[in-house]
Design a protein around this nucleic acid. Structure first.
Lengths: 217, 217, 217, 217
DNA sequence: TATGAATGAGACTTCATTCAT
DNA sequence: GATGAATGAAGTCTCATTCAT
């Protein structure tokens, strides 16, 4: 009842504008790339004046870093939510994995995830430290969480004894790399059916290599 | 017979300058990225004047496309040379695959390959058609050639019956994706031992999924 | 009565801050020049926030004027103190003049005096009225006081009959102009010996033109 | 006959534009001061585009330096032309000196000379090396030339034996310093009569100190 | 009263591109 | 065919100044 809408001014003004800038910046960077994204345009889409952006972030590089970190946080949260489904896989492990795999592909291929990867790749030369920030909050966090799930499955005998980190790394590889190639780095829209096929193929190969005779049945 | 040295002027002068520009352009684009690479700098490194670049390539976009295509050709040639080794795998299939895998990782991680991927990713928004050009000459060409080898191996009973394209896709995935993650998109230098471990793990999983009981022994 | 320390808040707080701003402003203007001196920096050095400066002085121009007037007052006070020494020159007029001349040169070349002159010159186009304020409080006041002394000396027969204003003007000219040239507008540090030589030469020439056969002996 | 008008294009284009920029820059700097003079405005008055200015001078600082040097050259040339008149002073030395002094005051007080001094003063903090450039080409050159003339006069017995450099320095001091004070650093327009009076007073004092009984008669 | 936040205007500088030689 | 010179457009960043607390 005390409100909380962004339009309010006052002590909340600062934090609201800061977040508004971050929210506006990511799509612009994603559209234009770092070098071609104008601070002017970002400010415009955020509904603030250009100097306000500089007031909050100092310069364009800083703004970019903050934007990327913010986006990476959001992407990781989505991915982790999907993986949670492996905590209780039910009786049919194959089906459960397939389901999670398919959902992960959807998350990995949504606009925001792809843009995040583009931008990271694109600016790796200019912002080498960005890799740690982004990878740490996406691939690494995702891999760790997945490895946790796989370790449990291995302990409970539903996967063969193995290094769960390696297994997680490879399952992710089987999912993301083909998807990346087929989607033309995200340019081509991959139909749901094909996405499902990729997930199925990845899980199939994964279980052939890591499954137990009885685990998936 | 009148000479083919680059410095000479004459009938070859034009084509030589064109190639000199291409050769100079790729490192500059790789260092600075497309937007930050100045035509001035490229011309300077090629030893020509700026208008000469425009004379040959029309504009910066065209120059970029030509540069990327040229680099992609070179990368593909390197990769194909490696895969040729699978034409006669010898008795120990596991060892042969491991050897090829390791060599492919080396090729995929050299400076030129990485720069090519960076630039492609970075400019995918501005040059969507570049993906076809680059992927067609690298990933696709590589996948096709690898599928050919795997099909032969399957037919000869050393791999289980399978879709060779899918198998090739997954083998490449198991190789490149972990490598990409570990190398921090190429920023971190991955030691040879780790590269070897990635190759070994990939081949191991691949053969568990696609091998035959007698194929690799 | 409740205290007059600067740090205290209360009735004196306002006037203290005002003076703190003035004291901080002059060195900043002197370092950077009017256009390049930022209100931000001045506020920072004064230990107040930017709007406080605007609260007290309205705008930058006003702040500049107030700062210059304050500095000019201080410089004039120093100069007048020196000239007072001519009130009772003693028996050796030459020596007394030489002594006063030397001291005046020292005052004219201290950091604050130079900065005041720089800034006046520099902003004469933008603040034409500043000249009256500054000159009125420095050169003019100094000339008048000196003329008074010289008139007395002329009346008492120690200088030949003359227009004391003109004599003062020329004595100051013989002192300041060579000094200005030699010091490179104050950039070069003039050694005390050279300063002394300039004073001696000025007084020598002055007494040749304005002295009486018996006046200086 | 081959022409030489500024409007011509071709090989002469470069040098013409360069000079046009210099000629346009000085008045703008003089009007606005260094910081407030916009490269845009300078380019506009020179009839060229802004990048052309940067093409020729690199940056604003360089442009300023070149502009000041060019103006200093012109001012020195004017002053030297005046002093040449002392080469053959004629019978009435007093009259000759007075004439030269008056003409020098006119040169010293013309718009260009004053602007040159303003700008030098104003920017002495930011361009300390400018002082050498400007003073070297104006005050120093003028003092040397004047000293030469005075030395001749001393040798021929029309001035008493003296250090000509010191004499020149003091004559210039007696001329410029009062003028500077009276003109309010050039802001006030000094009437010709007053200028004449200053010259007369300076020469009078100078000859009292440096003349010989018969020299001026 | 003193301040953090916000703004509108404008500065310098660089770049891709095109004439005229 | 190759080049020095010139340009129009645009971008990042800073500053003096003013609300609203």
């Amino acid at each position: 009842m005390t409100g909380g809408t962004a339009g309010r001014v006052g002590p909340r003004g600062r934090i609201d504008k800061r977040q508004a800038i971050l929210d506006a910046a990511f799509p612009v960077f994603a559209r234009r790339g770092y070098a071609d994204a104008g601070v002017q345009e970002i400010a415009g889409e955020a509904g603030v004046a250009k100097p306000t952006v500089y007031h909050h972030f100092g310069d364009k590089e800083n703004l970019f870093r903050a934007t990327m970190a913010s986006a990476a946080d959001a992407v990781l949260a989505d991915n982790l939510a999907v993986i949670e489904r492996l905590r209780d896989p039910g009786e049919d492990l194959h089906a459960a994995l397939r389901d999670v795999a398919y959902r992960m592909l959807r998350v990995c291929c949504d606009e925001r995830s792809l843009a995040l990867r583009w931008l990271t790749y694109a600016q790796v030369a200019r912002f080498p430290d960005l890799i740690e920030v982004v990878q740490g909050r996406t691939a690494k966090g995702l891999g760790d969480a997945l490895a946790d799930r796989l370790a449990r499955l291995s302990l409970s005998g539903r996967l063969r004894p193995c290094d769960p980190a390696r297994a997680a790394e490879q399952l992710l590889a089987l999912l993301t790399a083909p998807m990346e190639a087929r989607s033309g780095l995200g340019i081509r829209k991959v139909p749901a059916a094909e996405r499902r096929a990729v997930a199925e193929a990845a899980v199939d190969t994964f279980l052939r290599a890591y499954g137990t005779p009885t685990g998936s049945g």
